[in-house]
């Protein structure tokens, strides 16, 4: 009953992969702006890995660093939506640009015996961390670094008995040398 017509080859769509993205948003620091930003991720079932907000050199402008795992194509779409928000001033995915990322962690660890204390202090030294609070059986350690470094440190002191960890989430900034070189290209894609 059908009718013969020529079947065309199907359209090939680029395959994309799921990976970590670091997205920097500058936005007017109004109430509700964070909800607008985060709901774009939540609405697609994406869990934000970390998010940090801080003031900037400009008044009433916040800088938000978002780390999220996601499909390239969908992240691209989210970034476009982020740019569309009335209160965002600038949105960049700096994942592929040379950049510096740092995170700060405060870690409470069990440190009862002398040998435990010595071993922890040695590790603190190696990792260039600091002990910021001491109690009879507890050290509180402050460490900064990228996610891998903090992860490695936590793994090493875990056996002593971790009591609590507070992490800030990543803040990131592009390397100046890279931003100079990239600024032209970025203008093209923005």
């Amino acid at each position: 009953m059908g009718e013969e017509i020529k079947v065309l080859k199907v359209r090939e769509e680029k395959k994309t992969e799921v990976r970590k993205h670091i997205i920097i948003v500058r936005a007017q620091h109004n109430f509700g702006v964070l909800t607008r930003i985060t709901s774009l991720f939540a609405g697609r079932g994406y869990n934000i890995e970390s998010l940090s907000v801080g003031k900037t050199n400009e008044p009433n402008v916040a800088r938000i660093t978002i780390v999220v795992n996601g499909d390239e194509r969908i992240i691209e779409q989210i970034i476009k939506q982020l740019r569309k928000l009335i209160e965002t001033l600038r949105v960049r995915d700096i994942t592929n640009q040379p950049h510096i990322e740092r995170e700060l962690a405060l870690i409470k660890v069990h440190a009862g015996t002398d040998s435990e204390r010595n071993e922890i202090m040695r590790l603190v030294d190696i990792f260039r961390a600091r002990i910021v609070d001491v109690y009879t059986d507890t050290y509180t350690i402050e460490i900064t670094g990228d996610t891998e470094k903090i992860g490695a440190f936590i793994d090493l002191i875990r056996p002593f008995g971790l009591k609590d960890i507070a992490r800030t989430g990543i803040v990131a900034i592009t390397r100046e040398s890279a931003t100079r070189k990239l600024s032209y290209k970025e203008q093209q894609t923005d």
Partner: peptide, 8 residues
């Protein structure tokens, strides 16, 4: 079906 939308 998006793959067959105006495929050429």
């Amino acid at each position: 079906k998006i793959q067959e939308f105006a495929p050429e």
